[in-house]
Computed example of a mutant assay.
Amino acid sequence: MKIGFCGLGRMGVPMVRRLLQAGHQVHVWNRSPAPVRQLAAEGAQAHATPRELADACAWVALCLFDAAAVESVVFGADGLAGSGSLRVLVDHSSIPPTDTRIFADRLAQANGAIWLDAPVSGGTGGAAAGTLAIMAGGPADVCDQVAPVLRAYAQRVTHLGPVGAGQVAKLCNQTIVATTIAAIAEAVALAQDAGVDAVRLTEALAGGWADSTLLRIFVPRMTQAPAEAQASLDTMLKDLDTVAALARSQGTAVPVATAAGQNYRLASRHGLGAADVSQLIRLFDRAGDRA
């Protein structure tokens, strides 16, 4: 299959690699050139603009930071919407459901292409291993058509309803993940302040009700800071702000997510925004000198 991919960040690069390994012909564009050169050396076809990429591919996937980046790449000068060849746009970015619906309507009016919102969960490790979970919104038949291609990097593609439904599911995911990470940080700090080796919490809690994938991943990352961020605190804050906005718009009470969001905002104010999300623990470090 020939597919385009725009957005070669922490997630995009391993996703494109998985597509290449699956035998697909992948066309790539990115605002900064370094990852384009890297993937071109591995077999991808590089393009100078998103529109040029879309002229070569009927299906294009995006993995961008926020709604502003998505709007620019799709509707800006030399954007994807300017191509008459584009038929399906698969957006793996995490953006507000309202923006997704607006963008889908604009794209349909511009060139008749169909928008699938398909945010992912599983981090860079899941992208590299091909085990991401994809939550999709849009026409079910189109989702079924593209799902075999998406399974190059996803173990599961779940269609949830019309355009925007995938983004709502991703916000539910982020609500659970962000609040759980905040709770784990408090538990690690509680153990450390009591003189208990927090590293052993995963062993001690294994099989109990507190055991979880997040516990097993984040206790080690909180007790020994990772060399490289897999997901940043600012990215999580962005998503929690979107959760809060959606909750306000529909009158949903989200007191736990709101409280957790203040921790992420405080971490960002302390200059930790680019750090791995596990480094939320540094808010609770009395010495203030955790590596």
Score class of each variant (00 low, 15 high):
Lys2Pro: 12
Pro14Glu: 07
Met15Asp: 11
Leu19Asn: 10
Gln21Ile: 00
Ala22Asp: 15
Gln25Tyr: 00
Val26Ala: 06
Val28Arg: 04
Val28Ile: 15
Arg31Gln: 13
Ser32Lys: 14
Arg37Asn: 14
Ala41Tyr: 01
Ala44Leu: 10
Ala44Pro: 13
Ala46Glu: 14
Pro50Asp: 09
Asp55Pro: 04
Ala56Asn: 11
Leu64Thr: 09
Ala68Ile: 01
Val70Thr: 07
Ser72Trp: 00
Phe75Gln: 05
Ser83Ala: 08
Ser83Leu: 05
Ser85Asp: 12
Leu86Asn: 04
Arg87Leu: 04
Pro97Phe: 03
Asp99Pro: 00
Ala104Thr: 06
Asp105Trp: 00
Leu107Lys: 02
Ala110Leu: 12
Asn111Ala: 09
Asn111Tyr: 13
Ile114Asn: 02
Gly125Tyr: 01
Leu132Arg: 10
Ala133Gly: 12
Gly138Ala: 03
Pro139Ser: 13
Val146Asp: 10
Thr158Tyr: 07
Leu160Ser: 05
Leu171Phe: 09
Val177Gln: 04
Thr180Gly: 13
Thr180Met: 11
Ala183Ile: 02
Ala187Phe: 04
Val196Glu: 01
Leu201Asp: 02
Thr202Leu: 02
Ala206Asp: 14
Asp211Glu: 07
Asp211Gln: 07
Thr213Leu: 14
Ala227His: 08
Leu233Thr: 03
Leu233His: 03
Thr235Met: 14
Leu237Val: 09
Ala245Arg: 11
Ala245Glu: 14
Leu246Thr: 08
Ala247Lys: 09
Ala247Phe: 10
Gly251Ser: 09
Thr252Pro: 00
Gly261Cys: 02
Tyr264Phe: 15
Arg265Gln: 15
Ser268His: 12
Gly271Ala: 09
Gly273Met: 06
Ala274Val: 07
Asp276Ser: 12
Val277Lys: 04
Ile281Gln: 13
Ile281Ala: 14
Ile281Glu: 06
Arg286Glu: 13
Asp289Arg: 12
Arg290Pro: 03
